[in-house]
Design a protein around this nucleic acid. Structure first.
Length: 268
DNA sequence: AGGGTGACAGCGT
DNA sequence: TACGCTGCCACCC
């Protein structure tokens, strides 16, 4: 209880934390009592980590007992622990081959493209970030959606750029597949690990960046709908019925209406 | 036509 | 506060 509180507030001014600890019944007479107390609390609050193979190569994963909090490539466990501490201000202990085995298995499965659901702890993110990350988590393997689409789905239709910022700080890349979020004009956009990696990841999932650029949207006269090119419905359109578009607006002008499954954004 | 560029609105942090 | 994994439009070939 106290431990949680200290962890949550460890970036706040010391006086404030001291006040809270006193209120919680801890005895702190002088400044000298404070640091060791916090240290003790933090030492006992170690999250653990393990590493697994992934499309980005070997990655490390930091997790609590039940859920994943952070995923990143690193050249060594030490480097990973350092970066975790930089982000979360918390210690990490090695958990390879221990009680994290079950969670590790699920992570490995998910990274291999299975539909395995990995519980995530996003409690240290803002509400907006959380909404965005949840939306992005739902973009299926082999599909891509624009930043503007994510923004609208998250309830902030004009926040595409802010969505980019959330992606840039995604604590769990691959698990929240931010590589599937692309620009509205079909270009792939940036990626924390380089645009090359982003395109490689997409290609591995069967999304061709070239094709996406050529026709980010596809309509079909059969149903009169326009889809994101990677929408599961769009992929079934027979070649002779496929009408490529560079924007939803063009498709709408041509008489197509947005697909109800992939819900392309009609420009305002 | 459609591809490229640059300015800037707009958002959350 | 200024900044950024964007979007849109104007303008140019």
């Amino acid at each position: 209880m106290i431990r949680r509180m200290v962890i949550r507030r460890m970036n706040e001014p010391e006086e404030r934390v001291v006040g809270l600890l006193r209120a919680a019944g801890e005895r702190i007479d002088s400044r000298r009592d404070f640091a060791p107390l916090v240290e003790r609390i933090l030492e006992s609050a170690t999250d653990s980590f393990f590493s697994v193979g992934s499309p980005l190569g070997r990655v490390f994963v930091a997790a609590g007992p039940e859920d994943v909090r952070y995923l990143a490539p690193a050249s060594s466990p030490e480097e990973f622990v350092r970066s975790y501490r930089g982000c979360f201000g918390r210690f990490l202990s090695d958990a390879s081959g221990s009680e994290m085995k079950e969670l590790a298995g699920r992570v490995e499965g998910a990274l291999a493209g299975e539909r395995a659901d990995v519980p995530l702890d996003l409690s240290e993110t803002t509400p907006f970030q959380r909404r965005v990350l949840e939306i992005v988590k739902g973009i299926p393997h082999g599909e891509a959606r624009p930043y503007a689409w994510v923004a609208r789905e998250a309830g902030s239709p004009d926040a595409s750029r802010a969505v980019g910022n959330v992606m840039a700080n995604n604590p769990v890349p691959l698990l929240v597949p931010c590589h599937r979020v692309v620009k509205n004009d079909g270009r792939t956009g940036s990626y924390a690990f380089g645009t090359g990696e982003k395109e490689r990841l997409l290609e591995q999932e069967g999304v061709s960046p070239e094709e996406l650029l050529r026709a980010p949207y596809v309509g079909t006269p059969t149903t009169g709908t326009v889809c994101h090119a990677t929408c599961r419905n769009a992929r079934r359109i027979r070649p002779e019925n496929r009408r490529p578009f560079r924007s939803v607006a063009q498709a709408v002008t041509a008489g197509f209406r947005p697909c109800r499954v992939c819900r392309p954004v009609v420009a305002a």
